[in-house]
């Protein structure tokens, strides 16, 4: 009888734990975002640290953004041209590429690239500070780690991701134009006319709005994973991997819901 009660108790414990743990995790993630964001206007403002993080997340991501955006526009133009040529609609290439880039490809790919490059670095840096007691040291010196570490990174990711997305839009379209003119020998007036007709300011704004959300996701997830790192070097490794995976999945899933909600 006692054995049965023990087994049943363990089953309930396991079920309870599997329900509670994800809820607790969501709670902790929300706390990191809410406290980080609530700290934005709290002193000290950490302007210098925020600018440093913007330089790291933004300026240092520029080479990879420039390279990938050019080739994204280029390859999409090449492939669309082949498909549209089957029914004589090559002129639509510029507009199609433009809408796809501004609404979907630029914010999503920028988000994924920033998550991979900067999100991983943020999680690794904060995680190693956690395991080497540097965060405890901040606490011990009466310095709020949320204000000192999380706020600047979160704010920088939110500001910089839309900026990188705007650059992605521009360079992606340049890649498309370059291939259309010099490889596919399309008519420039026709390409430009269709592109201008098709791309609306709403397409650009909706892409930038998505990028803003993706920036918040990257900043929050990376800081959260780093801040709650447990264990030694292995824990930092896990936090880093997990930050990239969780942020990437969250970007792709939220992208669908934002696209659904926006006109």
């Amino acid at each position: 009888m006692g054995l049965h009660v023990g087994v049943i108790a363990r089953v309930f414990e396991a079920v309870g734990r599997s329900v509670l743990e994800p809820i607790e995790e969501v709670g902790r993630v929300s706390k990191v975002f809410a406290f980080g964001f609530a700290n934005v206007f709290m002193r000290p403002l950490r302007i210098r640290e925020t600018l440093k993080q913007m330089e790291f997340i933004g300026v240092q991501s520029l080479p990879i953004i420039l390279l990938t955006s050019f080739f994204t526009g280029a390859v999409f133009t090449l492939q669309s041209h082949r498909a549209f040529a089957m029914f004589g609609a090559q002129a639509m290439v510029g507009g199609t590429v433009g809408v796809a880039l501004t609404r979907e490809l630029a914010p999503t790919l920028t988000g994924l690239l920033v998550a991979g490059r900067a999100g991983s670095a943020i999680a690794a840096e904060i995680g190693s500070m956690r395991v080497s007691e540097q965060i405890d040291a901040l606490d011990a010196m009466a310095v709020d780690p949320i204000n000192y570490l999380i706020k600047p990174r979160l704010l920088a990711a939110i500001i910089v991701t839309p900026m990188l997305t705007a650059i992605y839009d521009f360079v992606g379209m340049f890649g498309s134009w370059y291939i259309a003119m010099y490889v596919l020998n399309m008519s420039e007036p026709e390409y430009m006319k269709r592109t201008q007709e098709w791309i609306d300011w709403d397409d650009i704004w909706s892409g930038l709005l998505k990028a803003l959300v993706f920036g918040a996701i990257i900043g929050t997830v990376a800081c959260y994973k780093g801040y709650y790192t447990k264990g030694g070097a292995a824990g930092v490794g896990q936090a880093t991997t997990s930050a990239v995976v969780v942020a990437s999945v969250a970007i792709l899933v939220s992208n669908f819901f934002i696209a659904w909600a926006l006109p």
Partner: peptide, 18 residues
């Protein structure tokens, strides 16, 4: 946090900021 200003802590592995 205010009370912590009255303390100094030497950590096991120093916990210096890298």
């Amino acid at each position: 946090r205010h009370v912590r200003n009255r303390f100094g802590v030497v950590f096991q592995h120093a916990a210096l900021f890298d």
